[in-house]
Design a protein around this nucleic acid. Sequence first.
DNA 1: GCTCTACGCTGTACCGGTTAAGGGCGGTCG
DNA 2: CGACCGCCCTTAACCGGTACAGCGTAGAGC
Lengths: 338, 338
Amino acid sequence: MVTRERPTLEAVARRAGVSRATVSRVVNGSTTVAVAIRDAVNQAVEELGYVPNQAARSLVTQRTESIALILPETANRVFSDDLFFPAVIRGVSMELDAADKQLVLMMAGSAASHDRVERYAMAGHVDGVMFASMHGADPLPGALARLGIPVVCSGRPMTPAELPVPYVDVDHVGGVGKAVRHLLGTGRRRIATIAGPQDMIAGIDRLTGYQDTLREAGLPEHVAVGDFTRESGLRAMRQLLADDPGLDAVFVASDMMAHGALQALKDAGRRVPEDVAVVGFDDFEISRLSDPPLTTVRQPIVDMGRTMARQMLGLVNERPSEPDAVVLPTELVVRASA
Amino acid sequence: MVTRERPTLEAVARRAGVSRATVSRVVNGSTTVAVAIRDAVNQAVEELGYVPNQAARSLVTQRTESIALILPETANRVFSDDLFFPAVIRGVSMELDAADKQLVLMMAGSAASHDRVERYAMAGHVDGVMFASMHGADPLPGALARLGIPVVCSGRPMTPAELPVPYVDVDHVGGVGKAVRHLLGTGRRRIATIAGPQDMIAGIDRLTGYQDTLREAGLPEHVAVGDFTRESGLRAMRQLLADDPGLDAVFVASDMMAHGALQALKDAGRRVPEDVAVVGFDDFEISRLSDPPLTTVRQPIVDMGRTMARQMLGLVNERPSEPDAVVLPTELVVRASA
DNA sequence: GCTCTACGCTGTACCGGTTAAGGGCGGTCG
DNA sequence: CGACCGCCCTTAACCGGTACAGCGTAGAGC
């Protein structure tokens, strides 16, 4: 590596005929610098192509101007079937770009990588850490928060006992309620569900929404559990059909699983929505294009990312602009499948 | 921000009763340390929960142990319709994780962000920069390379005149050749194409492959141009049908555009493959699930990411393990659509 | 003309590590 | 028994910035 000599403050100072300190103040936009000197310094900066060394700066300011986003999954999972994380990233990225902060992306699917993340944050690599959804009662957010590192989660943490960390979530229960009542309203009475993983708040809350609404209506529950992937939706749907061939509707806790379910229903010769109505949860782009187009509960994923980023920016600037907990609304989008 | 006092080398040294330098050598796994002392230091590290400050370390070593991946698109584009970038990220991430390097993701869709990237790299934030596909003759890779910063591109750069930067690409022309000859082999004679954007090497090369093969066969060309999105594929297909209602096949330069084309054909009442055969390029997961399943040219996107990362690791370690230019093979995957 | 004040620049300590040079100590050999 | 050698540890310089204390200078006040 050639690493051509990069100019330092010292070099700029010599060229402009002033001291290091003055150059530093000019570069950082301080006010109390005479115009003539400021111009001279700026010219020297320009001529030498000076760029401040971030490591040196961070060493004294204790800030890095970058923020981590942790995806608690393996890279494989994050970017294969899934469309959730990309949308979160997009939202986060929009806000951080605007604030001129750098996004550092970390996958933390394994136990080892958990350690990595903790060490990374503690080494002062980043000014704050955001988590994009979590499994189980992950101790990492709490641990980092206790160390004084700003933390924001997407998805209500499962252990509210800990020192509370700010989070942004969506109204799972309300959204599912709307979906199931829509099914009831169109005359469905044997309504099953394919639930999400029960170690994630999104999985748990969406199941709760289903159960609450059916209980209210005095109807029996019929539950299969998947893990949000298309494949698991396909398997779960087969299972449900085997258990109750007469079911006339299914609420599926994610769009990807719903697409799997559509496949299973087609394979089983059921027509959608004539024989079985299907409602999903997410409202991904591709759900408008499935056959039939999917009725689903829209959650504003990009907005979750943006909100999370704004909360984080508030924390690192020590002037929290957003409330500690934000719950975004969900909305039923009715298409052909139910 | 509370920023609880993090222990420093000095603190560890005091506790272990040795000097800073010795602790440093232990932490960095130096050999020439007496066992007793090494144990004492390790114990002190453990007790205090010491983690080296990366900024301080970088300041003297001139390395950050992290590597940037630039996505030369807006975040919007990267994570909406697209499945290419996620796969590249996945591949890159696998390799860097294994090497214990940190991945820093940057979107650089706008002109302003171009500057940001250059400054970021020059500020010593990262040890190297990878580019995931590029538009036009982007000067940034060359500029960074000239500054002595390791650079690797995915996709052959369009300006080979410059100081050459290592790259990894796939055999576009060969893959398309196979696809078009497959169409010829099944008796198709009025073969159109939906080309990709002509400011990207992938768009250009795939069009070249189509043209070369048709010319060889002595058949007329029929070209519409899209931008790799589904929507553009839909529009381009409509255009092609309007221009030549009798076409019997179309090679589409990306899977997303091919899905748009399938939609347009269905809308126009054409049967696939009976009336019109369709071949795509990419082989995304969803292409197995379309109606009908898509015949397509598979390119190993995850492998591109991995290879690019390996090249980069070679560069930063100053022992290039991979050749400067890698061209990965493509493969025709025959399904129902052609 | 002298003092006082305010402004603006300089000198310098410091952030937390790494690393080259230096030095103490025990062992070996003549 | 003394000189020498080599092993390990310590001392201290340095990386490239930031920020605070301090000092020179110019203008105002009397």
